[in-house]
């Protein structure tokens, strides 16, 4: 581990605080549970700190960090024999007194979507999470995944298509 200087730590703290939410949500998209996403995103930051000397500060921190995070998530998925995803998606709008009766239907929609997402390949699921749930721009996705913007658009199209096919099967 590098020597823990105050300057280095405070610089790193800033990177953590700026990127912690997108780090957590990216991990959540892969592993599907709050506890695992929290643990993996934090462990990825600790690993990033250990290798902080390899980070080129002229580049985007999240792009560099994301590689570490993704690697940990993939290792976790490979090593977890019996994965238990708990509900990690919800509706954007809150239930109001008027639409309380929709509660059951909404819950079912969430369950079906989560089941469909879990049946997607890791790559399809990753790009759907980045675009649809984290609202990354095409440019941000292209930088994070290190692929051209055209490929981002095409991958998104086919990931949505796949998701649509799975949803049709499940409904």
């Amino acid at each position: 581990m590098k020597s823990m200087t105050e300057i280095e730590l405070s610089e790193f703290e800033l990177y953590v605080k700026t990127n912690m939410k997108r780090a957590y949500f990216s991990a959540l998209g892969f592993v599907g549970t709050h506890d695992d996403a929290m643990e993996i995103s934090q462990r990825a930051f600790i690993n990033a700190y250990k290798h902080f000397d390899k980070f080129d500060s002229s580049r985007n921190f999240f792009t560099w960090y994301y590689k570490i995070l993704k690697n940990l998530c993939l290792n976790f998925l490979r090593d977890s024999k019996s994965r238990k995803e708990v509900s990690f998606i919800e509706f954007e709008d809150e239930l109001t007194a008027e639409n309380q009766s929709d509660q059951f239907e909404r819950k079912e929609q969430v369950t079906i979507l989560e089941a469909a997402l879990s049946r997607l390949s890791t790559n399809d699921r990753e790009i759907i999470i980045l675009k649809e749930f984290q609202n990354f721009s095409y440019k941000e996705i292209a930088e994070t995944l290190e692929i051209p913007i055209g490929s981002v658009m095409s991958k998104l199209f086919y990931a949505r298509k796949k998701l649509s096919e799975i949803l049709k099967e499940l409904q």
């Binding site: 949500f25 959540l28 709050h34 929609q109 999470i129 949505r160």
Partner: peptide, 15 residues
């Protein structure tokens, strides 16, 4: 299909 799935995803968010 693309329009429908986009609309469905728009209504959802990660917890």
């Amino acid at each position: 299909d693309q329009k429908r799935i986009k609309e469905a995803l728009k209504k959802m968010k990660l917890k």
